[in-house]
Simulated scan of single mutants.
Amino acid sequence: MDLHALGFHETMETHEMINFKTICLVRSKLMQGICFDNDLKAMMEKDVHQTMAAIEELKELYEKARTNSDKG
Rank of each mutant, 00 (worst) to 15 (best):
E16K: 11
M1F: 14
E16T: 04
G33P: 03
A53V: 06
L30F: 01
D37S: 12
I18F: 03
F36Q: 09
T22M: 05
T51K: 08
C35R: 08
I34N: 01
T67R: 03
L25H: 01
E56C: 06
V26L: 10
M1N: 14
D39T: 12
T14W: 00
N19Y: 04
L58S: 02
Q50V: 00
D37Q: 07
L25S: 02
E57L: 01
G33E: 14
K64V: 04
T51Q: 07
T14M: 05
I23M: 05
A54E: 15
F8R: 11
L6Q: 10
D39P: 01
D47F: 00
F8K: 11
G72H: 04
C24D: 11
A5Y: 05
N19M: 09
I34L: 06
E63G: 08
E60R: 09
D39L: 11
Q32T: 08
E10K: 08
L58P: 04
S28F: 09
T11E: 11
C35V: 08
K59H: 03
A65V: 03
A65S: 14
N68L: 13
K46C: 07
A42R: 11
H49N: 10
F36G: 04
H9D: 15
T11Y: 05
D37C: 12
N38Y: 09
Q32R: 14
G33K: 11
G33H: 06
E57G: 04
G72I: 09
M44S: 06
Y62S: 14
G33S: 08
E57I: 00
V26H: 06
A5R: 14
N38T: 10
L25D: 05
A5L: 12
D47A: 08
F8Y: 15
E56N: 12
L30A: 15
N68F: 03
Y62Q: 12
D47M: 00
S28C: 13
M52Q: 15
D2S: 13
T51H: 01
K64R: 15
M17L: 13
S28Y: 10
D2T: 10
